[in-house]
Simulated scan of single mutants.
Amino acid sequence: MVVDDHPIWRDGVARDLTDEGFEVVATADGVGSAGRRAGAVTPDVVLMDMQLPDGTGADATTAVLEVSPSTRVLVLSASDERDDVLEAVKAGASGYLVKSSSKAELVDAVRATAEGKAVFTPGLAGLILGEYRRMSAEPDPGHLRPSLTDRETEVLRHVAKGLSAKQIATRLALSHRTVENHVQATLRKLQLGNRVELTRYAIEHGLDG
Rank of each mutant, 00 (worst) to 15 (best):
R36K: 14
V13K: 02
R134E: 11
G193S: 14
H6W: 08
A38N: 03
V45G: 04
Q184E: 14
L207C: 06
R134G: 00
K166G: 10
E105P: 02
D59V: 05
P69Q: 10
R157T: 13
R10G: 09
R15V: 10
G35A: 10
R133W: 06
D4E: 14
Q184M: 11
P146G: 04
D80V: 13
A34Q: 02
L144E: 07
N194K: 09
L198G: 06
M135L: 15
E115G: 10
H176D: 15
A60W: 02
G92Y: 01
W9M: 12
R133T: 09
R10D: 11
E81F: 10
A34P: 02
A60Y: 04
E81M: 12
A91Q: 04
D5R: 07
H143G: 09
R171E: 13
A28L: 08
D54H: 08
T61P: 01
V155S: 03
L97A: 11
G142Q: 14
A60N: 02
P7Y: 08
E66C: 05
R15C: 05
A173T: 12
S94N: 09
A34R: 02
V159M: 06
P122A: 08
L148V: 04
G206D: 11
E152T: 03
K99M: 11
N181G: 08
G92K: 03
D140P: 03
R133S: 12
V110R: 01
G95A: 11
D19N: 14
E81A: 15
H182A: 12
A58C: 11
I168N: 02
R10A: 10
K161C: 07
I168T: 09
L52M: 10
A28T: 05
S68D: 04
L86H: 11
L187A: 07
S100D: 15
L148G: 03
D19M: 13
G92S: 06
R145T: 15
M1P: 03
T121Y: 02
V45H: 00
T186Q: 07
L198I: 09
T56R: 04
A38D: 02
L207S: 00
G30T: 03
A40T: 13
V46M: 08
D108T: 14
S77G: 10
S79W: 02
K90G: 10
E138N: 12
A125R: 15
S79V: 00
E87H: 12
P43E: 02
E197D: 13
A169H: 09
D54C: 10
T42R: 14
A14K: 05
G130Y: 04
G130N: 14
D11C: 00
V119L: 06
G32R: 13
F120Q: 01
R188T: 08
G12M: 06
G12D: 08
G130M: 06
D140S: 12
L86I: 15
D108H: 12
L97K: 05
Q167R: 14
K99I: 09
E115Y: 00
R188M: 08
